[in-house]
Design a protein around this nucleic acid. Structure first.
Length: 589
RNA sequence: GCGCCCGUAGCUCAGUUGGAUAGAGCACCGGUUUCCUAAACCGGGGGUCGCAGGUUCGAGUCCUGCCGGGCGCGCCA
C-alpha cells in the first residue's frame, strides 16, 4: 500500500505503472482522469482515460481498459476490490474498507492531509480597496470577504500571502471632498462619517454644477500632489476618520486586514512618472491627443496611462503596483478581487504589464495576473441594493442587521431549557449571535459562483437548514456536544483505529478523504464556492451517519471509539474549512 | 454600434473543466418516527439545461449564429 497518500494518488500510481507495462513507457504520463464516482454503483472512483487513449491508438477502448485493469490488478489488490470495466471503457474502482480506514489515519493530523507547497514566491491579493472619501457601503463587502477567504486558503497550502488594501486615497475625488470640507471650515479633528458623507455628496454635486468649484478642487489636488504640509496633515485626518470605521467593521467581519496592509494609491504616487518613462523608453507608449496611451495589436482601444494635462490615472497606479509586486515582493501570483465591471480595465492593464515584462519575477518566472470578477449584491427588486430613499446601504447598517439577526436566532434557541446554550450569559450569547449572523452573510457571499449577482436576503442566509453558514456551524456544534456529553477528550483517541463497516460510515469516510483535493482545487481555481459545496456535502454525510450509526451506544467499544474518531475528524475538517472561509465555528449555538 | 458576462426544476443555486440515467436546498404531495441526537427521516411529482445548427464514441459543459437580461466602452477611480 502506498504511504500516506490519498486515494486518487494511490490509484493513479498503480494505473500509471499498468499503462506503462501494458502499452509502453511513453504512455506513463497519460492524464488518467480519476475522479470520485457520481453514483455508488459505479464504485468509489472511476478512471476515464481509456476512451481518449484508445482513440489516439486506434484501438478498442473497452479492450484497452481491461488490459490496463488486468495489469494493475496485483498492485491494487491491497487497497481495492477487483476493477470493473463498464460502459464505453470506464474503469470503476471500489476501495476496501480497510484501505479507507488506513487512508483516514493518514489524514488525521494537523494538516488534515492538505499538501503544502514550498514555493518561495509570494502571492499578492489586492482586496477591499475602499474609497476613503466616503463611508463604506455594501459594494465593499464582497471584495473584502472574498479576498480574505482566498488569502486564508492560499496560506493554508503553505504560501506566503501579502494582502494589499488598495485604498482609494488619492486623486480628484479625495481632493474634492477635502476642498469641500476645508471651504466649509469643518473641524477635521472631530470629523464624523455622517459629515464626511454629506460633504462627499455636496462636492460631487458642486463639481457637476459649478466649474469654479471643480477648478478650485483641482488646485487642491495639485497642492496635495506637491505634498503641501498643511494639506497632507488634513488629508491624514480625513483618512483616519474612514479607516477607524473600516477597522471596526473588519474586526466584526473577522477579516484579517489591518493598517499593515494599507497599500493605497497614495503609496504609489512617487512611482508613477517612472511608469510613463519606462513605457516611453520601451517604445510601447505613444502620444495621442496630448495623452500617453499604450496601444494593443489585438484591439482598437488603447490603454490610457497619462492625461493630456500630465496627470496620472488608476491604470498608471495599477501598473506601478504590478511592477513592485513582481519585482520587489517576488510575487508569482497577483490576484485582484474587484467587481466584474472592471474586466476590461484589468485585461488592458495585464496586457500592458506583459508587453513591458513586468509580469516577471526577479528569477524570471512568469507571474499569473488574475482578476477575480464578482457580481453585484442586489436588493429584493433585483436591482443593486439600495435603501428605500435610494442611497447606498452602508456596510455598518448591514453588519448591524446581520449581528442582530444572528443574535435573535441564537437567543430563540437558548430559551429552550434543554438547549446547551440555555443559561449562557448575555455576552456569550451575543458573541455566538455575531458569529452566526456574520457567518450567514459571508457564507451566502462565498457559496455561489462569484461572477453571478446575488440577492441579499437575510431571512434565507440565517436559516439553520439548507446550504447556509449557520447549518454548517450547527453541524460542527453538534459534534462538539457529543464529546461534552461523552466526557471524552478527543486526544485520547489518537492511538485508536478507524474501522469502516456501515454504508453511512463508508460514505462519511470517503467524503472526508476528498478534503485535501478540494483544498488543492480551490487554491488553484480560486473558486471558494467549491469548498462550500464540499462542506455542505460533508455535513450531509455526517448527518446521515449520525442518524444511522449509534456512536455512544455502539455495539462494541472499538466501534464506539472508531465512530468517535470519525466524529472528531469531521469536526476538524468542518472547523478548518469554515476557518478558511473566515467563518467562526462556535462550540455551542 | 462594438465588447464582455449571465441564462439549468415554481424559487435559490450546484454540476468535479468533454463522461454513464442533469443534482441539492427551499416549496409541494405521501408515508414513517419520539430516538446515543440540538437541524427529524424515507419516498414522490416536477427539466425542450434560452433557441437553432455544428464538432465526436459521448455536449448543460467546446465552436458558430440568433433571443432575452445585465454591465462596460480615453484623459473619474
Amino acid at each position: 500500500m502506498t504511504e500516506s497518500s490519498g486515494p486518487i494518488e494511490a490509484i493513479a500510481q498503480a494505473l500509471s505503472c499498468a499503462i506503462a507495462a501494458a502499452l509502453g513507457e511513453q504512455y506513463r504520463d497519460t492524464d488518467l482522469q480519476i475522479r470520485p464516482s457520481q453514483n455508488p454503483k459505479f464504485g468509489d472512483y472511476q478512471a476515464n482515460f481509456a476512451m481518449k487513449l484508445a482513440k489516439q491508438l486506434g484501438s478498442n477502448p473497452r479492450e484497452l481498459a481491461s488490459k490496463v485493469a488486468d495489469a494493475a490488478a496485483e498492485e491494487l489488490a491491497a487497497i481495492a476490490e477487483p476493477l470493473e470495466v463498464a460502459g464505453p471503457g470506464f474503469i470503476n474502482i471500489r476501495l476496501k474498507n480497510q484501505a479507507i480506514a488506513h487512508m483516514l489515519s493518514s489524514m488525521d493530523n494537523q494538516e488534515l492531509g492538505v499538501t503544502q507547497q514550498d514555493d518561495p514566491h509570494t502571492i499578492v491579493i489586492d482586496l477591499c480597496a475602499v474609497n476613503i472619501a466616503k463611508q463604506m457601503h455594501v459594494g465593499h463587502l464582497r471584495s473584502t470577504i472574498i479576498g480574505d477567504a482566498l488569502a486564508r486558503i492560499l496560506e493554508r497550502i503553505g504560501r506566503t500571502v501579502l494582502r494589499e488594501n488598495h485604498l482609494g486615497d488619492w486623486g480628484l475625488p479625495i481632493a474634492m471632498v477635502l476642498h469641500e470640507l476645508l471651504e466649509a471650515k469643518t473641524n477635521l479633528d472631530t470629523l464624523k462619517l455622517a459629515e464626511l458623507d454629506s460633504a462627499y455628496r455636496k462636492a460631487q454635486q458642486k463639481a457637476k454644477d459649478d466649474d469654479a468649484f471643480l477648478e478650485a478642487a483641482k488646485t487642491t489636488l495639485v497642492k496635495l500632489q506637491n505634498s503641501d504640509p498643511q494639506l497632507i496633515e488634513d488629508w491624514h485626518k480625513l483618512i483616519n476618520c474612514t479607516l477607524t470605521a473600516l477597522y471596526e467593521s473588519l474586526e466584526i467581519l473577522n477579516v484579517k486586514l489591518t493598517k499593515e496592509n494599507n497599500r493605497g494609491e497614495s503609496f504609489y504616487r512617487d512611482k508613477l512618472p517612472g511608469v510613463i518613462e519606462a513605457f516611453t523608453n520601451a517604445k510601447l507608449a505613444k502620444e495621442d491627443d496630448g495623452a500617453m496611451v499604450v496601444p494593443f495589436d489585438t484591439r482598437e482601444r488603447p490603454l490610457l496611462i497619462q492625461k493630456s494635462d500630465g496627470g496620472y490615472l488608476y491604470a498608471t497606479t495599477d501598473l506601478a503596483a504590478i511592477r513592485l509586486r513582481t519585482g520587489q515582493s517576488n510575487a508569482n501570483r497577483i490576484i485582484y478581487v474587484v467587481d466584474a465591471r472592471q474586466r476590461d480595465h484589468f485585461r488592458d492593464v495585464f496586457d500592458a504589464a506583459k508587453l513591458i515584462g513586468w509580469d516577471k519575477t526577479p528569477d524570471g518566472e512568469c507571474a499569473e495576473l488574475r482578476h477575480i470578477p464578482f457580481g453585484s449584491v442586489l436588493g429584493p427588486d433585483k436591482r443593486p441594493l439600495k435603501t428605500r430613499s435610494g442611497e447606498n446601504v452602508t456596510l455598518k447598517s448591514l453588519l448591524d442587521e446581520a449581528c442582530e439577526r444572528g443574535e435573535s436566532e441564537v437567543k430563540k434557541r437558548a430559551s429552550d431549557p434543554k438547549a446547551p446554550t440555555h443559561g449562557l450569559s448575555e455576552a456569550e450569547l451575543k458573541d455566538i449571535g455575531t458569529a452566526v449572523g456574520i457567518g450567514a452573510i459571508k457564507y451566502a457571499d462565498l457559496s455561489n459562483d462569484l461572477v453571478r449577482d446575488y440577492v441579499f436576503d437575510m431571512n434565507r442566509m440565517v436559516r439553520f437548514e439548507g446550504n447556509t453558514g449557520p447549518y454548517l456551524q450547527y453541524a460542527h456544534a453538534r459534534i462538539c456536544s457529543i464529546f461534552t456529553k461523552a466526557g471524552i477528550d478527543a486526544g485520547v483517541l489518537s492511538s485508536e483505529q478507524f474501522a469502516i463497516g456501515e454504508p453511512a460510515e463508508r460514505r462519511l469516510a470517503l467524503t472526508l478523504l476528498k478534503y485535501p483535493d478540494i483544498i488543492a482545487d480551490v487554491a488553484k481555481t480560486l473558486e471558494p464556492h467549491r469548498l462550500c459545496t464540499y462542506l455542505y456535502e460533508l455535513a450531509d454525510a455526517y448527518s446521515s451517519f449520525y442518524e444511522h450509526c449509534p456512536v455512544l451506544k455502539a455495539e462494541t467499544d472499538s466501534i464506539k471509539r472508531s465512530r468517535l474518531k470519525l466524529c472528531h475528524l469531521t469536526r476538524n475538517v468542518l472547523s478548518d474549512g469554515l476557518d478558511l472561509l473566515g467563518i467562526k465555528a462556535p462550540t455551542r449555538m
